[in-house]
Amino acid sequence: MGRWFAFWRTIRARRADGIDLDKADRLVSDSDPDLNSDSDLDSSSAPGSSPGSDPPLYGLGLLLAAARAPAWAEELAGEKEAVTRLVEARRVALSDHPVRSHDAQGSTARKTVVVRLAATLASLLVVGAIVAAETGSLPDPVQQRAHDLFSLLGVPAPSTGRQPGRDPSGGVDPTPTAPSPTPTPEPNPTATGTLDPSADQVRALCQAWNEAGRDPNGATMENQAWRTLVALAGGRARVPGLCAAFFAAESATASSVPPTSHPGGGPANPSRTAGGNKKNGWS
């Protein structure tokens, strides 16, 4: 290793100019000792030179010194005219775009920060409202409005009724997986008369879908009605679950409440619907 290093140094020293990266850095910054030595005095000690001769980089030193020499008169000729043009150009530029003070720049920066904060807060509010609507954390009227609004964006409606497995009566929840846009009717005669108005819409749509053959793509159903049903269910795949849950709830209500207590538009014979549901395996 040591012999190889000595060989490499020998080869390197034999370069006629001896200029490597470090020496080049010194040469351009005028800090190389070869450039600042007096050839008449020091040339005998310079490598590769003979007594009385110039150091190897004497010519290069002259060239670099000449390149960085002080300005000559020709280079500074026309100063007055040049500066006049510059002042005029600057005056025009200043009239178009005045120099802003530091206060003005600070004010602009503050405005930018306020606008960004406001945009961030608005984004957080919108996202929060969507999440709250999806989880059913909003008050009932607001929840319904939010659902009507966000269901068009594909946000699934929450289950606002009993939670699966938490039925205090110990009964089996008819909607263990499918969300329902309407509160599950309680077995209370007074509650059945206050069904959410959208329940009529769901009933009508589900009946239409049922009568159209329950096509999963709604191909046999009227276009607008299918789109509305999909929006209410929160997605095409959730339509069967929505209608199954709805009719199951309707049948449960019908078993304890006379059919005449339902608002108009409901099925003429809920038991038939419930039976149909069971026949179709929806419950």
């Binding site: 006629a16 100019d17 200029i19 490597d20 990266l21 020496k23 080049a24 850095d25 040469l27 351009v28 050839s39 008449d40 040339s43 003979s50 007594p51 009385g52 001769s53 110039d54 190897p56 980089l57 004497y58 010519g59 290069l60 002259l62 060239l63």
Partner: peptide, 28 residues
């Protein structure tokens, strides 16, 4: 750095630079 080094090497090897002599060097 490499471009600078190569430029300086070429300049040092240029005949007008390499043959430049100081008065003492010319005498020697």
């Amino acid at each position: 750095r490499i471009a600078t080094m190569r430029g300086l090497r070429r300049l040092a090897a240029h005949p007008e630079v390499a043959n430049r002599r100081s008065p003492a060097g010319r005498r020697a």
